Amino acid sequence: METEITFRIAVQKDLDSIVAMLADDFLGSQRERHENPLPTSYIKAFEAITSDPNNELIVACEGGKVIGVQQITFTPYITHQGSWRATIEGVRTAGSVRGRGVGSDLIKWAIHRAKERGCHLIQLTTDKTRPDALRFYERLGFVPTHEGLKLKL
């Protein structure tokens, strides 16, 4: 029998599991470095995220084990009459739980959290080489209303 999935703010001891999930796909394996010890860049990023009240790194846990992660950033905007929006990034689930609804539960949790924070909009991007991810987000109510552009520095 499966245990209940809970959600909480990540703590530093979760970082190894988080990086492992980020590295566990065809894109992540090319850009992440899941090593022991972890590169200090991950520790510095974790510290910056956790010290910023407008960033939350959320983990999904089952039986004490981290099985999912997402980052939510809350941003004030001058547009839309000075409202706030939430941006969801870095959504991953452990390979052992894929297909069990953990990703959907993570996104639903983020939607609830954005409402709690008074956001009028949630935005996210997904890589164009991930058509399954696009379908996943559309099933959860997200609509591809904009073209997203990025510039690597």
Results as ranks from 00 to 15, higher is better:
residue 73 T to C: 14
residue 49 I to Q: 04
residue 121 L to G: 01
residue 89 E to S: 08
residue 113 R to D: 04
residue 145 T to W: 12
residue 26 F to A: 11
residue 83 S to D: 03
residue 49 I to W: 03
residue 36 N to M: 07
residue 92 R to K: 10
residue 95 G to Q: 15
residue 101 G to A: 10
residue 121 L to K: 03
residue 12 Q to P: 12
residue 45 A to G: 14
residue 129 T to W: 08
residue 19 V to Q: 04
residue 101 G to V: 06
residue 46 F to C: 08
residue 134 L to V: 15
residue 33 R to M: 10
residue 30 Q to N: 07
residue 99 G to I: 02
residue 10 A to H: 00
residue 128 K to I: 12
residue 126 T to V: 04
residue 79 T to H: 11
residue 87 T to M: 08
residue 70 Q to F: 14
residue 141 G to I: 13
residue 149 L to A: 03
residue 34 H to T: 00
residue 125 T to P: 02
residue 123 Q to H: 07
residue 129 T to K: 15
residue 89 E to D: 07
residue 10 A to L: 03
residue 78 I to W: 12
residue 128 K to D: 11
residue 51 S to V: 10
residue 54 N to L: 08
residue 105 D to F: 01
residue 148 G to D: 05
residue 122 I to K: 00
residue 43 I to H: 03
residue 11 V to R: 12
residue 62 E to G: 13
residue 147 E to L: 04
residue 97 V to R: 04
residue 66 V to D: 04
residue 39 P to Y: 11
residue 34 H to A: 07
residue 9 I to K: 14
residue 13 K to D: 15
residue 110 A to N: 03
residue 77 Y to H: 15
residue 10 A to N: 02
residue 107 I to Y: 00
residue 49 I to L: 01
residue 85 R to P: 00
residue 43 I to D: 06
residue 152 K to I: 02
residue 31 R to G: 11
residue 145 T to A: 13
residue 151 L to R: 12
residue 59 V to N: 02
residue 130 R to V: 05
residue 84 W to Y: 11
residue 92 R to E: 06
residue 152 K to L: 08
residue 1 M to G: 10
residue 138 E to V: 12
residue 121 L to R: 01
residue 130 R to D: 03
residue 127 D to N: 12
residue 103 G to F: 02
residue 5 I to C: 09
residue 52 D to V: 07
residue 56 E to K: 10
residue 151 L to F: 10
residue 65 K to F: 13
residue 30 Q to W: 04
residue 51 S to K: 15
residue 82 G to W: 01
residue 127 D to C: 02
residue 37 P to Y: 07
residue 46 F to Q: 07
residue 147 E to G: 05
residue 34 H to V: 00
residue 82 G to C: 07
residue 8 R to Q: 05
residue 88 I to Y: 00
residue 42 Y to A: 06
residue 83 S to I: 01
residue 27 L to S: 09
residue 22 L to F: 03
residue 80 H to L: 03
